[in-house]
Design a protein around this nucleic acid. Structure first.
Length: 927
RNA sequence: GGGCACUUAGCUCAGUGGUAGAGCAUCGCAUUCACAUUGCGGGGGUCACAGGUUCAAAUCCUGUAGUGCCCACCA
C-alpha cells in the first residue's frame, strides 16, 4: 500500500520544514561533511547577505533578494560546495534614530536634546533589541537557508572593532582627513540634513539686481540675487571666463555696497552667462557653488548665520557689519534692501520662480552652512601593500582609491551582471568626490578621534586613549559625530568573517576569512551599486588588498502594477507575509522569479502569485499521482543512477518512457546552464515547461494507459524535486520527506547524464514521439474546429504505410488522448469528411516528404466550414512559399548563408509546396 | 544639462541575426479521471517610427518620438 499525499497542501508544513532544516545544522558549512562525503574536500561558496535594517519589516524587495540568494545558495550547496550564506542586520543609523526619536516625541514630547546622548542611545538599543528578532523570523519565513550561527550586527562589538581598525588604518595612510564642507542645515530642527532629506519646492520670489561699484571708479557691475541679505557674506564676484562682456574685468576689485569691503572679480566655469546679468556675487559660506568657487580662487569664507538662523554677531564684528549682528535673516533683508534703495545701489527687481530646499520634516527652508566634517580622500595617493593585487589590476605601486575602484571593474576582477551597469559605475567613478563619512547623529559608530583639551592635538586610536600623545594631558574629548552607515557596511564581506582578527584558525583549518573571502557573489539591488557595492570594493581593496566578491548580481526594484515604487505613504505597499499566508511561500518565490531578468524592475501583482500557486498545485498533484501508482515507485530500490536503463540491447522501455527520460535530461542540462548564467527566471521557466507541458500533459496521461516502470517513476519524481528545490524549497522538501529520511537540501543536484544524450532533440524516440504527438494534436484540432463535444468518441481513419507500423502499438494511447476510435484503413474518398495532413517523415531518418491523410468522421459534416478553413490554410502556406522563395532567390544567399540554414529552408520550401498542392487537391475534393 | 535604460499580443514581460514566445485575460468544448488552483482547442502582434548594414534584422548601427531612472545644476 503506497503512502498517499493529502489532497491539499497544508500550509503549516512550511514552519515544520524550516525547523527541520535548521535543526539539521546544514545551513552551517562546517557541518556539511556529515551530510555527505562529497563535501569533504569541497570548494567554498559564500554570499554575504545584504543586511536589512534592524528595525525593518519584510517587504517585497527583501523577499526578492532573499529568494534570489537562496536559489544561488541552495543550488551551490546541492552541487557540493561548502556553502555559506551569512545573514545579518544593519543598524541603519539615521533611519533607526529617526524612528525612535519620533516615538519619544509623540509619547513623551521630548527631543533628543532633552534626553541627552546616553539616554537616547539606551532607548534606541532597547528598541533595537525588541525589533531585531522580528526581521530574522521573516527571513526564516521566506525559506532562507542562511547560517544563523554566524549572524552579525553592524553595531556589535566585533564589528565596531573592525570599523575602528579600518578608520585608523585609513587615517594613518593619510586617506582620512578632517575638513570644511557645505552641509544642509535646518535652522528649526537644529540639525544637519542629508542630501536626500532635503526636498525641493518651487516658490515665487523677487530677483534683486544690485550694483557693485568698481574700486576708485565711477562704473559698477550689476549682480542678480534672490537673497540680498547674503551680500554681507560676499567675498567676491564671479563671471564665466568665456564671457566676452566681462573678460576685461577679471582681476579687478569691486567695493561691496554698504560695507565697502574690497572684493575681487574672478573667473569660474560654474557661472552661467545666460542667467541674470552673468555676474554672480560669491557667498562662500552659504552656497555650495560659491563654496567651490571660493576654494578654487582662494576667496575668504564668512560664516554668516548662527545655527538658529540669526546673523552671526561674532562674524559681524570681525567683518564690519555689526549693525546687522543678531538680526533674523528677514529683518536683515528688509534693512539691507531699504539701505540699498536709498543709496541707489538697487537697480531693479523682477518677480521670479525659483526652487528652494526645505526640510523634509518641518518644511523650513534649509540653510547651507560650512562645517567640519571627516572625509575619505579618493584622490589621495597611497601604496598598495599587496603587490600581486596591484599588478593584477594593472595599477602602479602608488595609486588612489578612485583608480583602485575603477581598475577592479575594468580589469574584470569583479564582474557585474548585467554588464550594462559597468557603464554607470565608470560614469560615477569619473565624477567621484571625497566621501563625507561623518554624520551629526548619535546612533552609530562614534568617530574614533579624540581632541586633547590641553594642546588641541587630534588622536585617532582603536581603543579610547588615556592620555594625549603630545602633551600627556589626560582630558580628552571624543568627536561627537558618528560614521556614515556605509562606512561599516563597506566592511561587510570581511568584518563578518572575523577581520581584523584573522587568527581564528582552528586545528590547522583555515579561518573563515581565509576560506570564504573573497565571497563568491554579491546579490543586491542596483540602486545601491554606488552607495554600497563601490564602498565594499574600496574597503576591501585598501584594507585587505583583495576584491570583496567575484561577481555582482544586480536585481531590479519591485514596483506596483502601475510601475510606482511601493511606499507606505502612497498606500500601495504589498505585505509579503499576507501574500505568503494566502498563496504559500513557494508560490511567492516563483512569482518573484518568473519573467524577471537581472537589473530590470518588475511590476508585481497578486495574479502573478496566483500563477505560481497554480503551478505549485500542479507539482503537488504530479507527485500525488506518481506516489499513488501501483506498484508504488517509492517501493522501488535501489535508486537507478541517471542514464542507466537506456542504451543498447533489447528495449525495455516504451517510447513514451524513453522520450520523457530524454526530456528530463535535456531539461536538466538547460536548467544547469541557465543557473550558471544567472538567468534564474528562464531556468524556472524551462523547468516549468518540462514539468507541466511534457511530464504532466503527455507522459502522465500516457502512463494512465501503459503503466510506467516503478523505477522510472521514482527517478523522474526524485530528479524533479531536486531540480526544483532551490526555487521552491518547501514543497519539494516536504514531498521528498514522504519517502526519504535524508534531507533533499543536501542531495546532489542533477547534472546531465554522461553519454551526451542531453542535447539530443532528434533522437529516434524524440522524433517518433513528436510524430505521435502531431497525430493526436491533429485529431484534437479537427474536433475542436467543428466544436464537437470533448466527451464524444468520434471515428478516425488513417492508412499507415509500412514504415510507420510502430504506430499500431500506440493505438490505445492515440484513442484515449484524441477521444477517437482509430481505424487503420483507407477512407472512402467519396465520403466528404475533413482530414489533415500528417507528416511523420519530415526530417526523420525515414526520409521522404510525403504526408499522410488523417480523417475524422464528423456527424452532420458541412463541407463549407472545411472549405473556409482549408482556404485560409492555403493562403498561409502560399505566403510562406512566397517568403521562402524570395529569400532564397536573393543574390548571395546561396553563397553566403550557412549550409544548415540553406538545407532547412530548402526542405521547408519543398514541404510547403507539397502542402499547398495537397490543400488544393483537398479543396477540389470538397467542392 | 550629462548619463543609463525601456518601447514586442488587451495586461505583465521573455526573446541579441535564420518562420514572433510565455503567463494572465478573452472565446469554444469538457466536470465522478492526480489536479477546475484542471484538461483540450481557438482568436489576437507590419516587434514605437524613419533610415542604414546584411543573403537575411524584433535582434546590429544612426536618427526621431514617447516613457522611466540616476547624477549634476537652478545665484
Amino acid at each position: 500500500m503506497s503512502k498517499a499525499l493529502p489532497k491539499k497542501i497544508d500550509p503549516k508544513i512550511e514552519n515544520e520544514i524550516y525547523k527541520k532544516w535548521e535543526s539539521s545544522k546544514f545551513f552551517n558549512p562546517d557541518n556539511l561533511e556529515t551530510a555527505d562525503d562529497r563535501f569533504w574536500k569541497a570548494e567554498p561558496f559564500s554570499i554575504a547577505m545584504p543586511p536589512p535594517n534592524v528595525t525593518a519589516e519584510l517587504h517585497l524587495g527583501s523577499a526578492l533578494f532573499l529568494t534570489l540568494q537562496d536559489i544561488m545558495v541552495r543550488h551551490a550547496r546541492m552541487r557540493g560546495f561548502k556553502t555559506l550564506w551569512l545573514p545579518g542586520t544593519d543598524h541603519a543609523a539615521i533611519a533607526t534614530q529617526n524612528v525612535v526619536e519620533r516615538k519619544i516625541l509623540e509619547t513623551e514630547k521630548k527631543t533628543r536634546q532633552d534626553l541627552g546622548r546616553q539616554e537616547l542611545l539606551r532607548r534606541i538599543n532597547e528598541f533595537v533589541s525588541q525589533t531585531r528578532g522580528h526581521i530574522q523570523n521573516q527571513i526564516r519565513k521566506m525559506g532562507s537557508s542562511c547560517d544563523w550561527s554566524r549572524e552579525k550586527f553592524t553595531l556589535s562589538p566585533e564589528l565596531s572593532l573592525a570599523v575602528r581598525t579600518a578608520f585608523k588604518q585609513m587615517y594613518d595612510a593619510g586617506l582620512i582627513y578632517r575638513g570644511d564642507r557645505m552641509i544642509n542645515w535646518c535652522p528649526r530642527c537644529g540639525t544637519t540634513l542629508a542630501d536626500d532629506e532635503v526636498e525641493y519646492k518651487t516658490v515665487k520670489g523677487e530677483m534683486y539686481y544690485i550694483r557693485y561699484p568698481f574700486k576708485g571708479g565711477e562704473n559698477f557691475l550689476t549682480v542678480a540675487t534672490v537673497r540680498p541679505e547674503t551680500m554681507l557674506g560676499d567675498t567676491g564676484v564671479a563671471v564665466n571666463p568665456k564671457d566676452l562682456r566681462y573678460k576685461k574685468f577679471v582681476g579687478k576689485i569691486l567695493m561691496l555696497p554698504l560695507l565697502n569691503r574690497e572684493i575681487p572679480i574672478v573667473a569660474d566655469d560654474h557661472v552661467d552667462p545666460e542667467f541674470g546679468t552673468g555676474a554672480v556675487k560669491v557667498t562662500p559660506g552659504h552656497d555650495p557653488n560659491d563654496f567651490e568657487i571660493a576654494k578654487q580662487n582662494g576667496l575668504e569664507m564668512i560664516n554668516l548665520y548662527t545655527p538658529d538662523g540669526h546673523i552671526n554677531p561674532e562674524e559681524a564684528t570681525d567683518h564690519g557689519f555689526d549693525e546687522y549682528g543678531g538680526l533674523r535673516a528677514e529683518e536683515a533683508r528688509d534693512k539691507i534692501l531699504a539701505e540699498l534703495e536709498s543709496k541707489e545701489f538697487l537697480e531693479k527687481t523682477e518677480p521670479i520662480e525659483h526652487r528652494v530646499g526645505v526640510c523634509y520634516r518641518c518644511d523650513t527652508v534649509v540653510e547651507p552652512m560650512i562645517s567640519k566634517q571627516w572625509f575619505v580622500g579618493v584622490n589621495t595617493e597611497f601604496r598598495i601593500e599587496n603587490k600581486e593585487f596591484g599588478k593584477s589590476l594593472k595599477l602602479s605601486e602608488k595609486t588612489t582609491l578612485k583608480e583602485l575602484m575603477t581598475a577592479v571593474i575594468k580589469s574584470g576582477a569583479v564582474k557585474i551582471v548585467p554588464q550594462r551597469f559597468e557603464k554607470n559605475y565608470f560614469e560615477w567613478m569619473k565624477n567621484l568626490r571625497d566621501w563625507t563619512i561623518s554624520r551629526q547623529i548619535w546612533y552609530g559608530h562614534q568617530i574614533p578621534a579624540w581632541y586633547c583639551q590641553n594642546c588641541k592635538a587630534v588622536i585617532v586610536a582603536i581603543e579610547t586613549p588615556t592620555a594625549c600623545g603630545e602633551c600627556h594631558a589626560t582630558l580628552m574629548v571624543q568627536d561627537e559625530d558618528t560614521l556614515d552607515t556605509w562606512f561599516s557596511s563597506g566592511l561587510w564581506t570581511f568584518s563578518t568573517l572575523g577581520w581584523p582578527s584573522s587568527a581564528k584558525t582552528r586545528e590547522g583549518k583555515p579561518s573563515d576569512l581565509e576560506l570564504f573571502h573573497p565571497t563568491t557573489i554579491l546579490e543586491t539591488a542596483y540602486d545601491i551599486l554606488f552607495f554600497w557595492v563601490a564602498r565594499m570594493i574600496l574597503m576591501s581593496g585598501f584594507l585587505l588588498g583583495d576584491i570583496p566578491f567575484k561577481t555582482v548580481y544586480l536585481h531590479g526594484l519591485v514596483r506596483d502594477i502601475e510601475g510606482k515604487k511601493m511606499s507606505k505613504s502612497s498606500g500601495n505597499k504589498i505585505n509579503p507575509l499576507e501574500v505568503q499566508a494566502k498563496f504559500g511561500t513557494d508560490a511567492l518565490r516563483l512569482s518573484l522569479i518568473l519573467g524577471n531578468t537581472p537589473g530590470n524592475d518588475m511590476k508585481f501583482s497578486e495574479t502573478k502569485v496566483e500563477a505560481g500557486r497554480n503551478f505549485i498545485n500542479k507539482l503537488w498533484n504530479i507527485a500525488r499521482y506518481l506516489i499513488s501508482l501501483e506498484p508504488s515507485p517509492l517501493a522501488a530500490v535501489p535508486t537507478i543512477a541517471s542514464g542507466e536503463g537506456r542504451g543498447e540491447g533489447p528495449k525495455n522501455l516504451s517510447l513514451a518512457a524513453e522520450w520523457i527520460e530524454e526530456r528530463l535530461n535535456i531539461a536538466t542540462t538547460i536548467t544547469n546552464q541557465k543557473i550558471a548564467a544567472h538567468d534564474y527566471g528562464s531556468a524556472a521557466d524551462e523547468l516549468m515547461k518540462f514539468t507541466w507541458n511534457e511530464l504532466a500533459d503527455w507522459y502522465l496521461e500516457i502512463a494512465k494507459i501503459e503503466k510506467p516502470k516503478p523505477e522510472l517513476g521514482k527517478k523522474i519524481l526524485e530528479n524533479l524535486l531536486k531540480l526544483w528545490h532551490p526555487f521552491i524549497p518547501f514543497i519539494t522538501e516536504y514531498i521528498w520527506s514522504q519517502f526519504h529520511a535524508s534531507l533533499l537540501m543536501v542531495e546532489e543536484y542533477p547534472t546531465p547524464a554522461a553519454g551526451g544524450k542531453s542535447q539530443i532533440t532528434n533522437s529516434k524516440s524524440q522524433t517518433q514521439f513528436k510524430h505521435l504527438q502531431e497525430l493526436i494534436t491533429g485529431l484534437r484540432n479537427l474536433r475542436a474546429e467543428y466544436r464537437e463535444e470533448s466527451k464524444k468518441i468520434l471515428a478516425s481513419y488513417v492508412e499507415l504505410p509500412n514504415s510507420l507500423s510502430w504506430i499500431h502499438d500506440y493505438s490505445g494511447v492515440i484513442e484515449r488522448l484524441s477521444r477517437t476510435k482509430i481505424n487503420f484503413a483507407k477512407m472512402d474518398e467519396d465520403k466528404k469528411m475533413p482530414y489533415f495532413f500528417w507528416s511523420p517523415y519530415g526530417g526523420s531518418p525515414e526520409g521522404g516528404g510525403e504526408s499522410v491523410k488523417v480523417y475524422l468522421i464528423i456527424p452532420n459534416f458541412d463541407p463549407k466550414t472545411e472549405i473556409t478553413l482549408t482556404e485560409k490554410k492555403l493562403t498561409e502556406t502560399e505566403d510562406r512559399i512566397k517568403k521562402l522563395s524570395s529569400q532564397m532567390s536573393k543574390r548571395g544567399f546561396l553563397k553566403k548563408a550557412p549550409a544548415d540554414i540553406i538545407t532547412k529552408m530548402k526542405t521547408d520550401l519543398t514541404s510547403a509546396e507539397a502542402r499547398a498542392e495537397a490543400l488544393k487537391t483537398k479543396l477540389k475534393h470538397l467542392k
